[in-house]
Amino acid sequence: MNQPQTKESGIIKTVTYEVLRYEPAKDRAPRFEKYHVPVTKGMTVLDGLLWIKEHTDHTLSWRSSCRMGVCGSCGMFINGLPRLACNNQIVHLHSDRITIKPLPNYDIIRDLVPDLETLFEKHRAVKPYLIRKDKEEQSHPAGEYFQTEQELVSYIQFAYCIKCGLCLSACPTAGTSQNYMGPQSLTQGWRYALDSRDEGAAQREAEIFSEHGVYRCHFAGACSQVCPKGVDPALAIQLAKKDAFLRSFGRRKQRPTASVAPPVQNWVPKADIPKAPEPTVPQKNR
């Protein structure tokens, strides 16, 4: 588009978007299409796609939602790396040609929309929820768990995963193996093993330490390189391997499990605080 690059228009430059298109109803094979996008200050790759949809080609499809790097929807292969489109400014790519392809290692539904179902299946397979031996306590929690700051820091980094799927795109093993669990699910499985509130490590072992689990990781480190939230899945996987190695020589101590906080006894409310409304959910006696 020939918009003037004036101070008033705010346009710094014009870049060329080369987007891999695939419409299953029409195309047999994917094809590249070029668009010229004017760039203003602070414009992200996602903003550019929205501009194209608004002004040039309304048929271009992709997933996006929060536009601020927390929902994990807009993962795409941009200029040689899997990235979140909303998390990368066009000027920070240092190129006048922005090449966008759908995330590798996932089937393509259409244009830039990957089929992330395999990612979610593998995630479900590691049982990504707290498991307690006391089933009654798990279904009807009586109170909060005690956990120290140190215990929190040992796993909280891995809990920041937004399930964007960039790590599986980057992983070379996931490139050839459809059975490999992948950095995302292995990290989430190990996140629960590290969590002192969890007692279900034995239930996840069969998946995490299977022949398609952590041992098919060979530390290419690409997953940690592309993770937009600093989760560092490679670290979690190597910690899991170290733990299993030490356990096979019987040299691993069981970590203590977080206990449930007892109900507060003998408390008296301050006089000027109004009474709370009645609970709408059935309560156990505290």
Binding site: P24, N105, Y106, D107
Partner: peptide, 8 residues
């Protein structure tokens, strides 16, 4: 519809 294989 036919999903396109995109494994590297």
């Amino acid at each position: 519809q036919n999903r396109l294989k995109n494994r590297l």
